[in-house]
């Protein structure tokens, strides 16, 4: 069992020091993620989702507890984990091609250009290699950011509300794209989102977080076959279940489900 679990998060606590006070942001986080799994983290804004991802990628140095990748404790950022930030963070002074190749340059290899091109094709940005970020739409920028995160073939892809800034139609389309890429790359993914439908559509498991301090409230598995039908009964049922955790379920629904 433990062998297939790429990522193990054990009793993780995280506090921020603001002024003279320690503020608990994450408390008692326990989670195992298996290789190739797609896990979503969902929770209200400000409950520490971003902090959680930053811990996984290694941008937050000090924490209590253990985060193990293949049994080894994480120590700072590494290119075996890729991240797509909340806003794309493409470097505005570099072309898309250069942005995507950003992480690759530390490796030696003469097929660098080919790798970059492959990933640009993968996210469907063929023909935009020489464009600058200001010339891309929001959806395209996120695609480029995903390509940039994947280019080192990381074991884990971390996504922080990658589609949060997009309009709902583009978002649905990008969800399909994300699923396609995830399958093709056969990668372990941890995605933060605040969109319940997105979580149900994409995830194998949904981690629901409660606020202040951020704790794991419940983990809901999504045992649906892919591609998923957003209108199916099972899909709706799981969506309801997630929403229930946020007390957002419609009142009258109680009435006829009694």
């Amino acid at each position: 069992m433990a062998d297939t679990e790429t990522l193990q998060i054990k009793n993780v606590h995280k506090t921020f020091r603001v002024g003279k006070q320690d503020i608990d942001v994450l408390e008692d986080i326990n989670l195992n993620v298996s290789a190739g799994e797609f896990v979503s983290v969902i929770g209200a804004s400000g409950c520490g989702k971003t902090t959680f991802l930053r811990l996984l990628v290694g941008l937050e140095g000090e924490y209590q507890g253990d985060i193990l990748l293949n049994g080894k404790r994480l120590n700072g950022p590494s290119i075996n984990r890729g991240i797509v930030f909340q806003n794309h963070r493409l470097l505005p002074w570099l072309t898309i091609e250069k942005n995507v190749g950003l992480g690759l340059e530390s490796k030696k290899g003469n097929n660098k250009a080919q790798i970059v091109q492959d990933h640009i094709d993968l996210v469907g940005l063929k023909g935009f290699c020489k464009s600058y970020p200001y010339q891309l739409s929001g959806g395209m920028s996120q695609r480029a950011a995903i390509a940039r995160a994947l280019v080192n073939r990381p074991e884990i892809l971390l996504l922080d509300e990658p589609l949060g800034a997009l309009d709902s139609l583009t978002r649905m389309y990008m969800q399909n794209e994300l699923e396609r890429i995830w399958k093709l790359e056969n990668i372990t993914a941890v995605m933060v989102t605040h969109d319940v439908e997105e979580a149900v559509y994409l995830s194998d498991r949904i981690v629901i977080m409660s606020c202040r301090p951020g704790k794991i409230k419940r983990i809901i598995p999504v045992p649906l076959s892919r591609p998923r039908d957003r209108a199916s009964y099972d899909f709706m049922r799981i969506k309801e279940e997630v929403l229930k955790e946020f007390h957002l379920q419609a009142e009258e629904h109680f009435a006829y489900s009694i």
């Binding site: 990628v57 290694g58 950022p77 930030f85 806003n87 963070r89 530390s106």
Partner: peptide
């Protein structure tokens, strides 16, 4: 934000400065 991108990709000092 940009400096964190550099950390994620483990840039060396020189590359950090130039890119």
């Amino acid at each position: 934000e940009y400096l964190e991108v550099a950390r994620v990709f483990e840039f060396k000092q020189l590359k950090l400065i130039t890119t």
